[in-house]
Design a protein around this nucleic acid. Structure first.
Length: 115
DNA sequence: CCACTGACGAGTG
DNA sequence: GCACTCGCCAGTG
């Protein structure tokens, strides 16, 4: 093991993963929102970087994170995982249109839990 | 150390 | 809705 971390000092990645794990099934959140909830306002890019570092089989529901426009960024960059993301979302009941977009208005994760 | 890239966001035209 | 700019930060060469 490389280095031991100081107690209470979690890495930014750990906090990001912790937030993503809290996104309810059938709902989606955005990179910016996750960053903010993780205590990293303005660092949405780092959220994307953290998710990109995830491996298959991780307990982090990364497919529930889309960009601020409601688009599947993964599909936008032509990544094959975009198909997986779309499939998983639809399977959870989140409709994805032909432009790889989801309605944040209806399915965006709101802490208020309004329906 | 510098330049470039990338699962992003907000602002402007 | 689209194109462009700037801000942010980690990783790579």
């Amino acid at each position: 093991m490389p280095q031991r971390r100081s107690p209470g000092a979690e890495s930014a990645y750990d906090r990001i993963y912790a937030v993503v794990r809290r996104i309810p099934r059938g709902r989606v959140s955005t990179y910016g929102a996750v960053a903010r909830l993780a205590g990293l306002p303005g660092r949405a890019r780092q959220v994307g970087y953290a998710l990109a570092a995830l491996r298959d089989g991780s307990s982090v529901p990364w497919h529930r994170v889309v960009n601020a426009q409601g688009r599947l960024s993964l599909a936008r960059v032509g990544s094959p995982s975009g198909i997986t993301q779309r499939l998983r979302l639809v399977r959870e009941g989140v409709p994805v249109d032909g432009g790889d977009r989801v309605s944040l208005t209806s399915f965006g994760w709101k802490l208020r839990g309004r329906t």
